[in-house]
Write a protein that binds this DNA or RNA. Structure first.
Length: 506
RNA sequence: GGCGGCGUACCCAAGUGGACCAAGGGGACGGAUUGCAAAUCCGUUAUUCGUCGGUUCGAAUCCGACCGCCGCCUCCA
């Protein structure tokens, strides 16, 4: 059984064979920290965290890098608009991004999870390099490109010469000639309109903190080059997987390939994995769309607001319920449907705990991550096989979630029949949970309802339920139902069971 | 205009040549259970995969044309 991945470079699914057996290097293009991150910025991390968890389960040692672009024109403009520095702005936006990563159980360097924390085990970002801290590496690559006649200096700028790279366009499958058609490209003084900046000379009105020294004078790196420099530094000149959103295929990734391969003469990345873009009611979520609807949608889609509105697990489940290469459409209807799907699992885990007297979470915590030495559960089951088969096939999380759902009914049916051995129920539910955890789900029990921790409310509910119970004994169902309906309206649902009544608050 | 992706039931969504007269979730409907609900279980809900042609013993899956939707097309943004 082998893992296959869809490679944008070839346009096909290919068997996944890392360069170094047992080791995988992954580079994911991260955020440019100039505006609050939105859901689109979380999709890559969620998917690649899941990929890493799965590859770890399959026995690979994975090193995952996510870069932070903190030197950029947009950053300079936005900082000026806000009357602050690029450093302060970048720091603030990055903190907001990391807070979201933390909520989503995506580990990162410097987070406060203990080593081996179950929430992030198997996944997590290993390095988050910043462009501003790799100027030296960047300059060295540029110099190499100049020496090898792949780049030229123009004033204080340095440009990459696309005609010097015979492969240019191989990722996005477009030739240099293709781009000379319809659209009029202004070339300025560049030799070719397709040539792109490796280094930009500082302009007088720009803040001092973005004026870096270089052999070509003060300035700053162009977009693209930081990824070539930082990936080489942390993963080597050739590494396994390079990922990012579909919108980065051209020009960003195309240019990264051109620079890196022209500088090193070696293959840059073996597999290119691009995830679909996030839409809101069928439109791409984009920071540059300034229509009123888009701005309103953006406000809601901002990670800060979205994670206040939805549970992080719901966001993750929602993202993973579509194959990563396809676009994800955020809409209230779609969110509602996945929320109900997710609740099916919670309901099951609660029921198992009630009927066996043991928490599935605790049982699985003790067993450790699936694939580890202490693995328990139904690892040999048909459901497990289907799960693995789906994930092996280009990380088909949608198919894997279907396999998760398939395991729910049989467990409920087993308990419905009565008389099942608690160990059997726990084994099945534990196996289901362990697979879910490979997707970063079911890591911790869903947050208790805010009121469940409020002692007074709990006591009041006890009284209310007792009153209702007495009414029902006297067959006064009308009043009993009135209490239930009234509570439902304020977001508290009751569930009558033969041995008592459960209540739950939204 | 070029390049790329997509179009599967009421909605979301997997499947990309035979194990598919098409997973899974949501919804709806019927049954079991329940005082009634909730939850749960059982069942029904696409002989068909945008349209039309073609290749093939065989196609949702390959090819062509067309229709529709989306993304990208480079400093400046």
């Amino acid at each position: 059984m082998a893992i296959t991945v869809y490679n944008t470079l070839s346009g096909k699914k290919e068997p996944f064979e890392p360069l170094r057996p047992g080791h995988v290097g992954i580079y994911l293009c991260g955020p440019t920290v100039y505006k609050p991150s939105h859901i689109g910025h979380a999709v890559g991390p969620i998917i690649f965290d899941t990929i890493k968890r799965y590859l770890t389960f399959r026995g690979y040692k994975v090193t995952w890098v996510v870069n932070v672009t903190d030197v950029d024109d947009k950053l300079i403009d936005e900082a000026a608009r806000q009357g602050t520095t690029t450093v302060e702005l970048g720091r603030r936006v990055l903190a907001d991004y990391l807070a979201a990563m933390k909520k989503l159980n995506i580990g990162y360097p410097g987070d406060d999870h203990a080593p081996g924390d179950l929430r992030t085990a198997g996944g997590g970002i290993d390095h988050m390099p910043k462009a501003s801290e790799h100027i030296g590496d960047i300059c060295r690559i540029i110099q190499t490109l100049i020496d090898r006649k792949h780049a030229y200096v123009l004033g204080g700028d340095v440009y990459f010469d696309v005609t010097s790279d015979p492969d240019y366009g191989k990722l996005s499958h477009r030739s240099i000639e293709d781009q000379e058609g319809q659209r009029e490209l202004k070339s300025g003084d560049k030799r070719h309109p397709g040539d792109f900046a490796l280094w930009k000379a500082a302009k007088p009105d720009e803040p001092d903190e973005v004026k870096y020294d270089s052999p070509w004078g003060k300035g700053r790196p162009g977009w693209h080059i930081e990824c070539s420099a930082m990936s080489a530094r942390l993963l080597g000149e050739t590494f396994d997987i390079h990922g990012g959103g579909m919108d980065l295929v051209f020009p960003h990734h195309e240019n990264e390939i051109a620079q890196s391969e022209s500088a090193t003469g070696r293959v840059f990345a073996k597999y290119w994995l691009h995830h679909g873009l996030t839409r809101f009611n069928t439109k791409k979520v984009s920071k540059s769309d300034t229509s009123p609807e888009a701005l309103a949608a953006m406000k809601r889609m901002t990670l800060h607001n979205l994670l206040a509105e939805l549970t992080p697990e719901h966001v993750r489940f929602f993202v993973l319920s579509t194959h990563y290469r396809r676009p994800i459409d955020f809409s209230d209807d779609n969110l509602e449907a996945t929320k109900k799907g997710l609740e099916r699992f919670y309901t099951l885990f609660e029921r198992v705990q009630r009927e066996t007297g043991r928490s599935v979470y605790e049982a699985v915590d003790r067993a450790g991550p699936l694939g580890g030495s202490g693995s328990s559960g139904d690892a040999g089951s048909e459901h497990h096989a289907r799960f693995v088969e789906a994930m092996d096939d280009d990380f088909n999380t949608a198919g894997a979630i279907a396999a998760l759902h398939d395991a729910v009914s049989p467990i409920n049916a087993l308990m419905d029949r009565g008389g099942a051995a608690p160990d059997d129920v726990l084994t099945l539910a534990g196996g289901l949970m362990q697979r879910g955890r490979l997707l970063g789900l079911f890591l911790i029990p869903p947050t208790a309802a805010p009121a469940a921790s409020d002692e007074k409310l709990g006591e009041v509910m006890q009284v209310l339920l007792e009153v209702r119970q007495r009414l029902r004994k006297k067959k006064d169902f009308e009043t009993g139902d009135f209490i239930r309906d009234a509570l439902t309206r304020i977001g508290i649902t009751l569930k009558d069971r033969s041995d008592g009544t459960d209540w739950k608050m939204e």
